[in-house]
Design a binder for these strands. Structure first.
Lengths: 105, 105
DNA sequence: GATTACTGCAACTCTAGGGTTGCAGTAATC
DNA sequence: GATTACTGCAACCCTAGAGTTGCAGTAATC
């Protein structure tokens, strides 16, 4: 559903450890325990990060037997990118307008 | 120069107060003191946020008489957006490939 | 049914950083 | 030259959250 509040998504993305998790999931779906075997932190810490990522729609989970497998959602990243692109373009547009006015003086 | 380490930029963008500042600067350049008149926090707090934003290339400053005027840099936002777009696309590509394999079974 | 992986919850530590106050420095204005 | 805005620095408070340990719950496997 990509529920977007923008800033929370960016806050979630502003953490190196969470990127380690996202990169790992980007290569292959995995459970919290499996991720704990790859990263230098505990499973519980990873579980918390996964909860954050899931809350902002960057990750989704599904039961697979007795384990909870997580997968990464590229759509949320794309949507966030589009919004940033939009805002940046707006700013540049204003600056260009100012420049034009300055040159006419 | 848009020096990009990506995660620090996203961390800088993951704060509501800093967005208030960016939005204000998006409408018009301003000094820290001027911003303090618009937002419900002190000038010093704003100065810290501006330092963070400047460190990651989202904002630039220039002396204008006795005040330091800040302006927003859309280019950094656009560049960040492009990187996110790229990564999201990569993830989706892998997921599409997996789906294809699954359907062939 | 006992054992073996998983997940889930709770309490706790510790640091980063968002915010504050207070004061010193410096450039315009009168 | 005195006053009046600005910026800059330092010390401090306080909370959010990243990480930990420990244990209970639950679903496979033997």
């Amino acid at each position: 559903m990509t529920t977007n509040t923008l800033v929370p998504v960016l806050a979630a993305l502003g953490d190196e450890t969470r990127w380690s998790i996202l990169v790992a999931l980007g290569e292959s779906d995995a459970s919290a325990s499996a991720l704990a075997g790859m990263l230098p932190i505990t499973r519980q810490a990873i579980a918390k990060h996964l909860a954050v990522l899931q809350a902002v729609g960057l990750v989704a989970s599904a039961r697979r037997g007795r384990e909870l497998r997580y997968r990464v959602l590229g759509s949320q990243l794309s949507e966030t990118a589009r919004k940033l692109e939009q805002i940046g373009a707006d700013w540049d547009r204003r600056l260009v307008a100012i420049k034009r006015i300055a040159e006419e003086l």
